[in-house]
């Protein structure tokens, strides 16, 4: 990481992510009509090696949905989960009489991310008086390592150690999980901190 952030800054960021994530969790819960639990946001500077040791190995096959954020604080949201888990989440969204084939499942997941991200952004833009828009979500099924490195690089985060900002959502007790990563474009966290006054 090029610049270490102060504890106060990270606490403020955590609070913003917490508020956005809380709204996102509520919106998923309303959609699937089942309780959804959310962890406290994880904000941690990790090397790629640590990411693949602590979060998921690089050869794990995941489904991932990427939404870009445009406006005052550009960046991206990356929604990631193991294929089986995300397919279970999609199934909860679909009516029972609709066959959950691959295309339908992926479409449901993209819609889910659309809803999560917009619930998140609505809460945060009101709180901070920001203009933020989300792009159409794109989905892929691939290796966790390929996806994570590419997404951070595409946002101009070139350091060996990256600041992981993520939330985890749990469904069906704790059996099904997914993660939402917030990936700010390089130097945009500073902008957010300025807006937060920290």
């Amino acid at each position: 990481m090029s610049k270490p952030y102060s504890e106060k800054q990270l606490d403020a960021l955590k609070e913003v992510i917490n508020i956005g994530g809380g709204h996102a969790a509520t919106s998923i819960s309303q959609l699937i009509e089942k309780p959804v639990h959310m962890t406290v946001p994880v904000i941690e500077a990790l090397s790629y090696e640590e990411i693949f040791e602590q979060i998921m190995t690089e050869d794990t096959i995941v489904k991932a949905v990427l939404t870009k954020i445009l406006g005052d604080a550009p960046g991206a949201f990356l929604f990631v989960g193991k294929q089986e888990d995300l397919n279970d989440v999609a199934k909860m969204m679909l009516p029972v009489d609709i066959a959950a084939d691959e295309e339908m499942t992926n479409s449901a997941l993209k819609e889910l991310v659309n809803i999560i991200v917009n619930a998140f952004l609505n809460a945060v833009t009101k709180l901070l008086d920001l203009q933020l828009l989300s792009s159409v979500p794109l989905l892929t099924r691939d290796l966790f390592g390929s996806i994570v490195s590419s997404v951070y690089l595409e946002q101009g985060q070139y350091d060996d150690t990256i600041l992981i900002i993520k939330l985890e959502f749990f469904y069906m007790g704790n059996r099904v999980e997914s993660s939402l990563y917030y990936v700010p474009q390089s130097r945009n966290l500073e902008k957010l901190f300025a807006l937060l006054g920290v």
Partner: peptide, 17 residues
């Protein structure tokens, strides 16, 4: 050198792959 997600808009990094 792949581009994992194909967006039409350019990113700050361009197509890094």
């Amino acid at each position: 050198g792949a581009s994992m997600f194909q967006f039409t808009t350019e990113t700050p990094a361009g197509n890094i792959g």
